[in-house]
Design a protein around this nucleic acid. Structure first.
Lengths: 351, 351
DNA sequence: CTGAAAGCGCTAACAC
DNA sequence: GTGTTAGCGCTTTCAG
């Protein structure tokens, strides 16, 4: 009696298993498994019966059992180092989503700097990680990349593309994007256009600058050296750069900042100096992080599909690792996703 | 020969299992399991031997197998609706971390509005979710909460506390925090202090306002109605509120905004009007999101430990679900975490 | 304190 | 097309 009650109680809480469904549908568990996994070799009527049973019983497969049986679960590490929170949340969203889809455990690690990055990578490797995703600026650290290569750990970078044998990447065409933005400014009629650079240690900085220069060159405009100023991607550094630019006697009519944080800082500085945007000055950014739409006016910028990028990264990494496991040679891919020019309220023709 | 080679090849890729460790240490798999799980009933020498073997073999337990054997893996849904990206990333970080720790699958769902929230909750329940975490403003939706109660789904809110039987919560003491901030302003010597409210549908708004009022009342200061203005937590709404406040003939010497976004907007508006911060105007915020340290001057604010909050939420939810599974009655908890007053550069004594 | 047996829920591989 | 058998790697009994 006592026993029976316990069993009943347990049954209530127990999830329905594949066996229950099989029983209800009058087939074997294997058939149910096939239906669930979309195996084509099941008669339509059988399939319907099974689906019916699944429906009424409210069956949903046990992930752990499946992982165990297929030996599928992977462990992937995601390292990041002080990104903007918009970048981070967008990235995490993509990672979480895709990881769930392809049954992958993701370990997210914040690194204070490259030193710390090296340490984390070593730890993860020791813990038996299957692959690693690097976001900038860690993705640009040759040191970290070399460590990964030497330990033969699969690796993929997000946001910057490294043309090296052992790392794949997911990024956008920074050069083309910067060029498109600059062309837009040119079309608007601007001729005196300034550029605020990002951190020198990130590839993206150079690529964007190159795109900027190319657009101007194509239009037959010389870039005055004084109009290309240093920045470090931070709001703070943008403030400094903007002050320098706006205090010039012959100040630019448009400023293209290497990311949205610095563009926002430029807007703030302009306002402080009672310069109207976009009436008296055009400002545009890059990345389309949340800050771009937070401030006023909203910033014209380049949208990076960060969530899709991180999903793609997980997907790619997973394929490479499985290929490796099956003895195949994993190919190195560099995926380039589409960026999108987003026009908002911070640009206008020159006064 | 062929067979052997295949086996060898496979062995290379196969992870080391508990059996390998057991063999190497000369004990049974069970003993290894006990050591790994910190069971006390193992002789010290045996334990050392096992640990030694684990070390040299580089063993790490297979999560899937463990989940399966202990029937432990839980599914938890996390719903969010348009939070600031700082809030979101902080929350995701905590969730990811804790979920990995306690072997929980988290499904993150973005909801466009309450309607959408209802739909998502229904879907999740149908999919057999074990519990749900709600962040504001969804956490303040009675409708969603009722649905959850009726379906007997475990639920916990983050950031706002609902005093209802069936929902647990993790939050900070908004009232006390607002009070502490206001006291700070009072100590500085401010007497004409304005308050920018958040969205009226969020409990946090009222609590913070109450704290603000209480501090002033305790100091024997009447709050002029005109100094408490509407806002909706957005930068945009903060801009409007700040303009109203700063255009007053007898404008306030300090402005306490209900969150950092609105505080940042206030700073921008002040700058636009050539009002120096903190020299001529003190501005402070709430939440300590990234925006607070992005802009200049950095904003004095209240730090909410969002990452810890979401970790705690997962932890609590997990305990409740397991309790329920074991037939125990899950208790309803309201956990209040410590906030931290963070003084930065946006406050000073009145001019 | 330690070990043997049994099984968690699912899916490969092979039969039929 | 469908069923059978045999595990995946771990932990829970229950013996000793």
């Amino acid at each position: 009696m006592v026993t029976k009650r316990q069993i009943t109680a347990r049954k209530q809480h127990a999830r329905v298993t594949i066996a229950d469904v099989a029983h209800a549908a009058g087939v074997s568990p294997m058939t149910v498994s096939r239906v669930v996994n979309g195996d084509a070799r099941v008669r339509a009527t059988t399939r319907d019966a099974v689906n019916q049973a699944i429906e009424t019983l409210g069956y949903s497969p046990n992930k752990a059992a499946r992982s165990l049986a297929t030996a599928s679960q992977l462990q992937i590490g995601l390292l990041y180092d002080n990104p903007s929170s918009s970048f981070l949340s967008a990235m995490l969203l993509g990672v979480l989503d895709q990881a769930r889809r392809c049954d992958t455990q993701v370990v997210v690690v914040e690194c204070a700097d490259r030193e710390d990055g090296m340490r984390s990578v070593r730890n993860l490797i020791a813990a038996g990680i299957d692959g690693i995703i690097l976001s900038p600026p860690l993705a640009d650290s040759t040191e970290v990349l070399d460590l990964l290569r030497d330990s033969r750990t699969q690796c993929i970078t997000i946001g910057t593309r490294r043309d090296e044998e052992h790392v794949s990447s997911v990024s956008i065409d920074n050069y083309a994007a910067a060029r498109e933005m600059t062309d837009h400014l040119l079309t608007l009629g601007h001729r005196r256009i300034a550029f605020i650079k990002g951190s020198p240690d990130q590839l993206a900085t150079e690529e964007r600058l190159a795109g900027f220069r190319a657009a101007l060159a194509a239009a037959g405009i010389d870039v005055a050296d004084e109009l290309v100023v240093d920045g470090r991607f931070s709001y703070r550094s943008g403030l400094k750069a903007a002050e320098k630019l706006l205090s010039m006697t012959d100040r630019p009519t448009a400023i293209f900042a290497c990311n949205d944080d610095m563009a926002a800082a430029t807007v703030a500085t302009a306002h402080r100096n009672r310069i109207d945007i976009p009436g008296e000055l055009t400002v545009c950014g890059f990345d389309d992080t949340l800050l771009a739409t937070t401030i006023w006016p909203e910033i014209t910028t380049i949208h990076q599909p960060i969530t899709t990028m991180s999903q793609t990264a997980i997907d790619l990494l997973e394929k490479r690792i499985r290929a490796l496991r099956d003895g195949r040679d994993p190919e190195q891919d560099d995926v380039t996703l589409e960026f999108r020019f987003v026009r908002r309220g911070s640009d206008a023709p020159p006064p």
